[in-house]
Design a protein around this nucleic acid. Structure first.
Lengths: 357, 357
DNA sequence: GAATAGCACTCTGTAGTTTGGACTGCTAAG
DNA sequence: CTTAGCAGTCCAAACTACAGAGTGCTATTC
């Protein structure tokens, strides 16, 4: 058995894996470097501390652990965390009672994506004691579905556009001359027929069956096309965050400079530019630990993120941001459940065939 | 001259005012208790430090200054700041060049309240190096203006409602049985005629001229009334914040616990419940310094807030949150300008007579 | 050869002490 | 009223001493 493990130089023995797991779990709890004594008592390991120390040296040489200084305990490295989440971690599913409670909270809401997102953010933050993040779902190649033109006053028209990913957009337009509601409704009808099911590009080049657009119709088409391409430009303009205050409770962030980087990153939306595409293109949960991302801004945090949405049509991202020593098991369980829940909610609502191209 | 001041025991002599002003300005800059020596050089005061010290004792006895400990310099008290903003402060108007630049940024946006609010928050935060806050404007007694019903799919109808304060609301409804768009449009027309100009309460009790509502019409009326009363419940559900990271740069917030309180307060929306009514009911800029508010959560910060909106119809709040030693002059100048700017933008758009009841 | 007991060594964090400096308040003189 | 001078207070930074936690190594046991 043991020999088998030693054939492959990079493989860890069962005992080494056990020790690595204990180090990570203990460090996650206490945020203090873990020494051989702690390890021995934590997991009822029946070997002496000297033996454990020998193994620690090996684990350190292999890069799974680091030592802040001689004569301190060990701290997991990024490589250590990575190995942990891939091979050692106990998968935690959200307890059924909790699942039921969460579903209950959702059923008390109306059919409003915004409210769903807020609740999701709140639950994620509360459940993981970390900061949470959620973007709205956005489509890749969105088709037009329906528009309305509403006269607000003589100088102002409200354009409401519904796209096939279920998103709703509103924009104010200023007509060159006052237009009565009746005329606006005519325009809307004509446009609805002509543009139905078209993509942004097609919308832009559409012309009427005969004659040309009225000036205001041109404005509307132009605005609609812009709005659709922006939506496609794979960057939701906003996202919700909750639970930032949780991070301030962690010892590694009381130093405030690291925390400041996190806040900055959230406010600059660099998360969206850098991480979102990666999460949405993957399928399943993405775990990004410390410097595995390409930004130094994220060097001191870990992310557990999942795509969600109506598959093939509109995808968003949700997840949590926490210290590298976050409770990955719990975080993953919660993120996975929330993503599934939103998936099914969205599919119930927007998933009917009638939305298909 | 001097005697005149001394007649009233509570009035400060010109020199005392000068000294108080210097203390506050120096403390605002350096965040370090201010001693008699600093005062002498800061303002080219032509008296000895001993004289200044005598005056400091008086100012302290009157409650304008405090001493962190014997043999430290003086720090302004809440009363001191209050006197400063009311009597001593140099009013700063935003430089014209800056005003122009800001207007320019706004003109590049579309007619979209959301975008205006974001830009405002960004400008406020950047300009004052503090955190900024802005709520949407909300009405007190809102009247119905227009609605549209849009069929999303067989089981889903989108209700878009425009109210007379210019706000737009959307809600998803599930009809008991599938309804075609044509029928929905009929419903919408009928409702638009019957409900035009009504308040939430009136909407709720409206019945058709003859017969009764169709079941789905009832649903719509119900939903509309709910939505309008929520809007009136004088609590915007959301607001924007920017520049939180600025606060972390201030020495008083690196201690993180105070900062945590600020974040908590923002996320719990207690700002809305506690402060918003007070700001909106007042007219003009409100300055709240430290414990002048009723929440201990705000004890360590100051707020400079202003109402904005279409007067008598829809009001919101905007402003900044910073340390008590914030640069009040600059903050007030910026807040005032942004409020005026939004006022005029909103009035241009929503202010036409056609919106009047 | 793997596991272990024992021991010397290293490093940190904390508590106690010292010292320099920045102020103040008071007093007496201008 | 103003000011120079001075003694006294308090803090913050620097230094020292020390206990505690933990390691790595070596000699020994199984």
């Amino acid at each position: 058995m043991t020999e088998l493990n030693q054939v492959d130089n990079n493989a860890l023995s069962a005992r080494q894996r056990e020790i690595l797991k204990i180090v990570i779990e203990a460090y996650t709890e206490a945020a203090v470097p873990v020494g051989s004594n702690t390890i021995r008592h934590y997991g009822h390991l029946d070997v002496s501390t000297a033996t454990i120390r020998n193994e620690l040296v090996v684990l350190e040489e292999l890069g799974y652990l680091t030592q802040p200084h001689t004569s301190a305990g060990r701290v997991p490295s990024v490589k250590g965390y990575r190995y942990f989440v891939e091979c050692l971690m106990d998968q935690i599913e959200l307890p059924l009672a909790e699942q039921r409670m969460i579903r209950h909270q959702f059923h008390q809401l109306q059919l409003n994506l915004d409210q769903w997102m807020r609740l999701t953010a709140a639950i994620l933050a509360h459940n993981t004691q970390a900061a949470s993040v959620i973007t709205p779902p956005y489509g890749k190649l969105i088709r037009f579905r329906h528009l309305e033109l509403i006269s607000i006053n003589d100088n102002l028209v409200l354009l409401v556009a519904v796209l096939q990913d279920g998103s709703i957009h509103q924009e104010m337009l200023i007509p060159a001359e006052p237009l009565v509601q009746e005329l606006l409704s005519q325009y809307a009808n004509r446009l609805n027929v002509l543009l139905a099911g078209k993509t942004a590009g097609d919308v832009r080049v559409t012309t009427p069956d005969e004659g040309t657009w009225e000036p205001f119709e041109s404005t509307v088409v132009q605005c609609l096309a812009d709005l659709m391409s922006t939506s496609e430009a794979n960057r939701p303009t906003s996202f919700y965050t909750e639970g930032l205050e949780n991070m301030l409770l962690e010892p590694e962030f009381t130093a405030s400079e690291k925390f400041r980087q996190v806040i900055l990153m959230l406010q600059q939306h660099s998360l969206l530019e850098l991480i979102l595409p990666r999460v949405v293109d993957a399928n399943g949960i993405q775990i990004i630990i410390g410097n595995e991302s390409d930004t130094t801004q994220l060097d001191d945090v870990s992310l557990v993120l999942s795509p969600y949405g109506v598959h093939g049509r509109a995808l968003g991202m949700l997840g949590v941001i926490g210290p590298m020593r976050m409770a990955y098991g719990r975080a993953i369980g919660t993120v996975r459940y929330m993503a599934q829940l939103l998936n099914s909610l969205l599919n119930d609502v927007y998933g009917g065939e009638s939305l298909a191209p």
